[in-house]
Amino acid sequence: MSPSGERIEVLRKISLKVPKGQFVTVLGPSGCGKTTLLKLVAGLVVPSFGRILVDQIALTRPSCKLGYVPQAYSLFPWLTVSGNIEYGLRQLGTLARERQNRVDQMLSLVGLVEFRSYYPRSLSGGMQQRVAIARALAPNPDILLMDEPFAALAIEQRQAMQVALQSIWMKTGKTIIFVTHDLSEAIYLSDTVYVMSDRPGSLIGAREIPLPRPREIAAREGPEFFGVYKELVSLTSSSEGFK
């Protein structure tokens, strides 16, 4: 699929197949169009050419089956943590008791049980992103789309969130499409890494990450990790504009 918006070609000849249950990362420099790619999959952007298929069915609009977690500051400020998490469930018409149960489930999944009545403005960035993840997961989507969700966080928070995300993924078995420009993050989290070039973004490489699960932080210092890292670094630095 290669869409272009307003006479600017944003993405070129992108063709991706994501198997169910996999953790896939799209890696690319800033401005390469990876956010647009994710929004296309979410149904928020209409492609000029090509199409998106989910389970063989063409995608026409956003739905709660495609959970979406953007970079930052996306929580509804007028709702509490539990209000935010149950938003999608209310939309679906889930009954109050069921909603309550689901919210409790989500809160313990992301480790924020004590914060259910807090407003977003009282939460740190990391906590807000955890709520955003819980909110996207609450309606039980098949696929989770995450757009550089940890980019706005400090390094310690980011690492903690990566570990947390891996554990959430292993517990829930969702398909996750994750966008980032951080190579180390990509290798740590995913089964497959797709590398994009600078604008107009096209796929310049894909690499399976055969490292065993669950992956520990310490493994990032290990030789296998470093091997994959070096490979991908040479691939990415061959394209312009990469950090």
Binding site: S63, C64, G67, L79, A136
Partner: peptide, 26 residues
């Protein structure tokens, strides 16, 4: 903020419903 509306869409709100569920409270 358009991000708020986008999130609402991904959670199943139609653009029309979004006026009541997002625009109004915000």
């Amino acid at each position: 903020p358009p991000e708020l509306l986008e999130i609402a869409y991904t959670l199943g709100t139609t653009p029309r419903m979004a006026i009541i569920r997002v625009v109004l409270p915000y």
